[in-house]
């Protein structure tokens, strides 16, 4: 099963590689990993999208908690949560495609953020599957370049993790 794990960790050099190293050393899956400082500059928040059996997830959480620089670990998939990802996608846009791409971008609530006479660059946010759907909706030959942030996620409700 897919899990989204939020990790609060000391914003220190090396903390990120400890987490990344843990996943590779113990053979845990990483689908995506994002990290940036929070409103408290001394703390970073990391979101890891991973998957595995219940036993493996139990170990993932315990092993993460064991890292000295990790302050808190929470499996967001245990409760209601919101997941968002940012995608920047550069597509060919010439002739009739130009209008079609614009229309598709509007349907997905994307924003065109850069334009040339041959291309559009579109900014799109949403859950990962929405971004996938957008890519699939395009003719494969049209995509020039894709960059995705990986999932960021937060629990629903008024409380912090």
């Amino acid at each position: 099963m897919r899990h989204i794990i939020s990790i609060l960790l000391e914003n220190e050099a090396g903390a990120l590689s400890r987490v990344a190293g843990l996943f590779s050393a113990r053979g845990y899956n990483i689908e995506a990993m994002t990290v940036a400082p929070t409103h408290d500059a001394s703390i970073s928040r990391m979101t890891v999208a991973t998957s595995g059996s219940e036993e493996i997830m139990e170990q993932v959480l315990k092993q993460l908690n064991k890292l000295v620089e990790v302050i808190r670990v929470h499996d967001l998939t245990e409760g209601p949560h919101i997941e968002r990802e940012l995608m920047l996608i550069k597509v060919h846009a010439v002739g009739p495609d130009r209008e079609e791409v614009k229309r598709l971008s509007d349907i997905f609530r994307g924003r065109i953020i850069d334009v040339t006479d041959r291309s559009y660059t579109i900014e799109l946010t949403g859950p990962g599957d929405k971004l996938d759907a957008f890519i699939h909706a395009l003719d494969p030959g049209m995509v020039i370049e894709v960059v995705r942030s990986g999932a960021s996620a937060i629990s629903r409700g008024a409380k912090a993790i």
Binding site: A13, G14, S17, R18, G21, A25, V68, E69
Partner: peptide, 13 residues
Amino acid sequence: VGITRPCTKHNFL
């Protein structure tokens, strides 16, 4: 620090 990261409880530079 990189080499010993997986075989120490923790390490510092």
